[in-house]
Amino acid sequence: MSARIVHIASNTFREAVRDRVLYNLIAFALLLSGAAILVGQISIDIKRLVVINLGLTAVSLFGVVIAIFIGIGLVSKEIERRTLYTVLSRPVRRWEFIVGKFFGLAGTLVVNTFFMAIGVFAALLFVSHKFARPDALILVALYFIILQFLIICALALLFSSFSSPLLSAVFAFSLFVIGSFAEDLRGFAGMAHGLTRWLASAAAYLVPNFSAFNVISSIAHEQPVAGQLVLHNTLYALFYAAMALSGAVLIFEHRDLK
């Protein structure tokens, strides 16, 4: 059983690579080196700040875009092109297909993020000539970004299991934006009364909470990240992704492949 998931995942990864997804790294490298050179002309103190802020923000946004645009096609494209017929007529369970696809996409993003991380550290070295202890915090920020990707991958896959790619993209992107303001949303819900409060709170807790994952600006200011937050975010990302995946499995398990 686990072997089939691995095969599906590695085929998904191969598809992403052959579809030239990793070319985004070139754009990323250009952006970052441009910024590193430009910022070198400005003041000393702000260099590090700009490189970290810009670098990590770009890692996050590039990854989100990739996650959404690959994720939304993972299931629907296979149904549309009927490539799924020859997969599901083998001893492959439908849930294995979903889980394999998820790991394939997540793996693609991890590899992509790994290369981008090298880029960020290289740019940092270029502007400040040496690494300092607080730079290790960047790793925490990168870890949070990857956790965020897991959630987005699972959500894109969920939408992909019942909706068209375009609609899925709209849904997934909206949730990303809403999720980035999830804490405001919960605060907002807390200010309401009665039924509205109840409904708003339910919605606010159901959308993914991305604000706790964004530590870029605090890390740029060398603020430490609480160990508790690392633990909570890890658990949250795992459970939320599991929830979205279970939803995708439930839908896909009952879907007729017309």
């Binding site: 919960r186 604000s211 937050l229 909570h232 658990l235 459970f239 929830m243 279970s246 939803g247």
Partner: peptide
């Protein structure tokens, strides 16, 4: 599969909400 996935969904949903509440408590002014 339906049963297991359904159970996973409910458990994950509850857990993620509980964790979120903890996160909110530790970061009241996030």
């Amino acid at each position: 599969t339906t049963f297991i996935a359904g159970a996973c969904l409910v458990i994950s949903l509850i857990m993620s909400i509980l964790i979120l509440r903890r996160v909110d408590q530790t970061r009241p002014q996030a």
